[in-house]
Nucleic acid binder design. Sequence first.
DNA 1: CTGAAAGCGCTAACAG
DNA 2: CTGTTAGCGCTTTCAG
Lengths: 334, 334
Amino acid sequence: MGKITIKDIAREAGVSITTVSRVLNNKAEGMSKKTRKTVLQVMGELNYQPNKFARGLVTKRSNMLGLIVPNISNPFFPELCRGAEDEANERNYSLIICNSDDQSQKEENYLRLLQEQQVDGILLSSKNRLSQTSKDQLESGKIPYVLFDRGEEASNHSGVFLDNEKGGYMAGKHLVDLGHTKIACMTGPLEILNAQQRLAGFQRAFTEASIELPKSSILVGDFQMEVAYLIAKKFLQDNCVTAIFASNDLMACGIYRAAHELGIQIPEQLSIVGFDDIPLVTALIPKLTTVRQGTYEMGRKAIELLLNELENNSSEGVVFDPTLIVRESTKKIK
Amino acid sequence: MGKITIKDIAREAGVSITTVSRVLNNKAEGMSKKTRKTVLQVMGELNYQPNKFARGLVTKRSNMLGLIVPNISNPFFPELCRGAEDEANERNYSLIICNSDDQSQKEENYLRLLQEQQVDGILLSSKNRLSQTSKDQLESGKIPYVLFDRGEEASNHSGVFLDNEKGGYMAGKHLVDLGHTKIACMTGPLEILNAQQRLAGFQRAFTEASIELPKSSILVGDFQMEVAYLIAKKFLQDNCVTAIFASNDLMACGIYRAAHELGIQIPEQLSIVGFDDIPLVTALIPKLTTVRQGTYEMGRKAIELLLNELENNSSEGVVFDPTLIVRESTKKIK
DNA sequence: CTGAAAGCGCTAACAG
DNA sequence: CTGTTAGCGCTTTCAG
């Protein structure tokens, strides 16, 4: 850490520290070009780096943003992080990425930590409903935040969300169009609005086509691969369906394995459609048909909203549209 | 941000700010238990949060660490992040995670950014050789750093690495033991030491068994899925091998696809062994046999080293041992 | 167009 | 065991 300070460069440049501070902050455009230039030059020569602490102490701004994700191991989230990070960096902010591992406890800790760290804003993506503690934490510190990926709070507060119902509908419609009538749906935990909405959309597509989705065909997973595999294996052993919609791609992976072990061919005997379009889904054989969220873009947008809120105090909710990516795991029924 | 400061709590508690500062820092154990208790209580009641800026300004410490990874989309790195983050948090540090997207340019920017941000230390994981600029950047700021995942610097500076040669050897030995003689190896870019070493180990296993690995069977990939797929497809069309070792799991995925499209059965006609053991590898059908790096643990260790360096100025290099995880993608040759 | 001076909230000698 | 005091490096009135 160069110990050279604003004073040093003031001395070298033969001006006052105020002047240096001014050029540092691009202030008071009405400053002699010459002075500015000299100062800039000296700063360059001395390789001056302003001290964030001193700065923050007076401005109360850290130029840091916090991002809490529920599960960094689900490839969906690294994409979000990339988007958020790129946007933040371009706007001259740094991102502290925190992984709550799906534990409310950890989430709350991070919320506190980030406030202590004096971040300027928080982007919170929690797969679960916000705990009361989290809400309190968020409200008590007056720091701006935006929600990501959970629709439930959409009404009250700014955030970015996906139209999950529509996504579910697209998956369902696709299957209907292919002529499937015996279908199942593997959803995430039903207390999560995302999961509920995707299911609702999926059902709507079939209702429109006057096809019934029996209750027994609604399989409740946990958005993870392992449990999905177990449930699917059991289900496929006893039931005969021609298509399954998985509420996220990780669960679709589990279903692939179950089908494989039971000797069920995809897509010949079983069509599968996933949700998310995580990068690794093209590694599956056959490639997975899925509903894409523009994850990277959503990450960028979320930071944009956060910064708007921070800088202009404007709050806004934006809803993204999903797109259906048809690949190889779905097939017309004969 | 509670605007309540050390002064407020001093006044409320009827002590001097120094005293408050002392309890804040657990200093001077010889303080009346009663005073300490009162202060603590008032802090609780007023929900006091010390100001990091003011603190940092005098201590020159931020309690933040930076972590630069080359590619957050490769599931290998989220695991590293998790380990690093958990360790950092337990030691009372926060982590700023930065993704350099495999671009030296971005890496250099982050290096600068992190220094500006006044982090206390940097954990740098760059798949590529350090650029000169990066090196300079690292040396100029006097901030401690540790290297991750690249052996080349091991001698000079503290870091955590994997014994890549050994890992390659394990993969090779496994294939030798299964009776394979016609083999190929898909490596990463050869200017990366990791890739080189894995290849060297692999070759050693075959040399020991007096089996030759022809030059034409060394396929140079880029550690990504797509390119691996293209190369493998071309190669497998023209050549007949019974086993391939992929220098990382992502490339193994690409090879799976190539084999599938060519109608080559895994493992009946082709055995594959990967490297890394990323979580998603169990989603492949058949499950991939691979060489595991204890990624999460390595992340923890790296932070531990960094903190040691930071706190005790001790520098140390540690080398992890890989383990072979035999699953379903390799088979004895008949 | 430029400078002097007053803090921001905290820690760290130095006294008592 | 506790308090006084002098800054840390920067921004920001307020003057000139």
